[in-house]
Amino acid sequence: MDKPVIGVTMGDPAGIGPEICAKALSASAVQAVANCVVIGDRRGLRHGLKISKIEGIEINSIKKIDEAVFKPGTINVLDLENADPGKIKTGQVSKAAGKAAFEYIEKATQLAKNGEIDAIATAPINKEAVHKAGYKFDGHTEILASYTKTKDYAMMFVSDKLWVMLVTTHLPLKDVSRKLNKKNILKTIKLAHETLTKLRGRKPKIGVAGLNPHAGESGIFGKEEIKIIKPAVEEAKKLGIDVKGPVSPDAIFYLANAGMYDIVIAMYHDQGLIPLKLLSFNRSVNVTVGLPIVRTSVDHGTGFDIAGKGWANPQSLIEAIQVAAHFSKTR
């Protein structure tokens, strides 16, 4: 069977994106499962190879996907020529870097929608830089949802230890409670059910975390569990979904790691990401579910503090490409 073609966006060119792209696409673990094309700037990738001290790799700069040459020792770059090293300084937030990073996502989305690539794996962007460039999105997820006109979507994180899906994403903690409602919790439960059923060929066991300590303790520590979370769970059960909750947030991740649940529905970003990263940092992958295209991403940021030093770990990008390749075959 032919290997899927994965478009790997280079991320913010001032961060560790070029370095981890160079390392990941040179890895046999990636070459074994996918044909990859970096969507970025050849100068950035060349710099990534240099600081990584990777030799013997040829950069094939292309303008169209069908110009790619998939063979050992070659990295294909769909070169947008938009990351001028004279205007972008490594490790610094800039409008130029934010604009370049956004354009990589934009191009990758277009290619995926047109069927020219089978999936997208994204290196990290810097949200401040993207905002400086004039794009008012909270992150990759919202950009992709907008460009694919997707209304029902969610962030799912997968690892060897734990799978998590988020009801809310990039919000100040003080705003989480008022953004939660029965509708968006039920939507997330349904997305988890549909996604895992498709991937695994069976109904998943879903655990839904409470919001408050001890899942509210019958309303003593908060009413969200009684008013919105439990009604959403009960509605999901009526649809034939195998779901339990609200479960105390301080217990549910332990139970999932022990095998009681296939996936946990977390109410907010850090509730789900702290246990996930504690168990599987650099080995977890962000998947945007609900899109008409496959998109995976690393589980970390742009690493401005280590950019340009050759220290960046490519493992999360390697995992993201592997997951993208696998998921692309299930669509």
Rank of each mutant, 00 (worst) to 15 (best):
M155P: 06
K151F: 09
N126L: 06
G139I: 08
E81A: 12
G245N: 07
D242Q: 13
K230W: 01
S328H: 00
V294K: 00
V33E: 09
M267Y: 05
F157V: 01
E106D: 14
V158Q: 01
G301K: 06
I241N: 05
R200P: 00
A100K: 05
P292Q: 05
K113E: 11
L144D: 04
E225I: 03
Y135E: 05
S284Y: 00
F137K: 03
N76I: 06
I39M: 05
Q110P: 01
I59D: 02
Q92I: 07
I117E: 02
I263D: 02
Y147D: 07
T141G: 10
T90H: 00
H269C: 13
H193I: 05
I62N: 03
D66N: 15
E128W: 02
V167D: 00
L78I: 10
V164A: 00
D262W: 05
K161R: 10
N82H: 11
I220P: 00
N257T: 10
H269W: 10
Y254W: 10
A325G: 10
T150Y: 02
G310K: 04
D66L: 09
L273M: 13
A307H: 06
E19K: 12
A236W: 03
L111T: 07
A307K: 04
Y153Q: 11
V298S: 01
P292C: 09
Y254I: 13
G91N: 08
V243Q: 07
K53G: 07
I228Y: 09
L291G: 04
T302M: 00
A14S: 15
V93I: 15
